[in-house]
């Protein structure tokens, strides 16, 4: 049942993406994307319901698409051009591709373990999802700025970078607090994924410094756009499992 929800969400995002480039169907695309977000969030709720008070495992690749779509819908609100926001098709394309990856390379079937029954662990995971989605949206906005000029972006890249960095840092702090309470160490080396987390923190610390102080105007935009490759490669890939065909739908 849970996998069916995930697959439905992917299908809805795919449909919304297909509808997004045409002028006449953009409103419909938004509606379908909302349905995709709702289905994706229901899937996440089901995973949490099946694990609480423990933390569901390896949700990174699955949880980012609905949050990214939600941030995209926020960006495509009427004051930003509504359904005609030029970043909409690119955002939906990203959402769809990430969701497809989690359907064909699932890893979210692992059972949770008792040590993850901690509010710090739960908060860490949630901040991670939100942070990744904000970084990806910052990449979309930076791409728009490069493609269509300053008027198309209006400081949104910096906004989403700042938000993403704040969320990522909160994820880091809650993760460290959990690590200290659970293991007595600030960094536990049992999971290699910890260095991926650090890598993105350093990467976005560099990008944000450039944005805050208005230095290297073109390079900082390229670095923010490169985040569209960096985040999936460094932070989504470790949450993917082996190729599975046909994908489990039920």
């Amino acid at each position: 049942m849970e996998r069916l929800l995930l697959s439905s969400s992917t299908g809805l995002f795919g449909l919304a993406w297909g509808l997004s480039p045409r002028r006449g169907t953009r409103k419909l695309s938004r509606l379908v994307a909302w349905l995709g977000v709702l289905t994706g969030l229901v899937y996440l709720f089901a995973r949490y319901y099946g694990a609480w008070p423990m933390t569901p495992m390896y949700l990174g690749s699955v949880a980012v698409p609905p949050f990214l779509a939600l941030f995209g819908l926020w960006s495509a609100r009427p004051t930003q051009g509504g359904p005609h926001w030029p970043g909409w098709p690119l955002t939906l394309g990203l959402v769809f591709c990430l969701d497809l990856l989690s359907v064909f390379f699932p890893k979210d079937f692992y059972l949770p373990f008792l040590k993850t029954a901690s509010l710090f662990s739960q908060a860490h995971l949630l901040f991670c999802f939100l942070g990744k989605a904000a970084f990806l949206l910052a990449g979309v906005w930076a791409g728009l700025r490069l493609w269509a000029g300053p008027g198309a972006e209006n400081g949104q890249t910096r906004l989403w970078l700042a938000l993403g960095f704040a969320l990522w840092t909160l994820a880091m702090l809650t993760g460290e607090a959990w690590s200290y309470l659970g293991w007595g160490l600030p960094v536990v080396w049992d999971e290699a994924v910890i260095v991926c987390f650090m890598a993105s923190w350093f990467y976005y610390a560099a990008v944000l410094h450039l944005f805050v102080t208005s230095r290297w105007p073109r390079a900082r935009l390229y670095l923010a756009v490169a985040g569209l490759v960096w985040v999936p490669l460094v932070n989504v890939l470790p949450d993917l499992g082996p190729w599975r065909w046909p994908p489990s739908l039920g």
């Binding site: 650090m198 890598a199 560099a206 410094h209 460094v234």
Partner: peptide
């Protein structure tokens, strides 16, 4: 910025090694 980028690449490279 250069140190942060160096650290980003260094730690990203560390994942497969760990």
């Amino acid at each position: 910025v250069l140190i942060c980028l160096f650290l980003a690449l260094d730690t990203a490279l560390a994942y497969p090694l760990i």
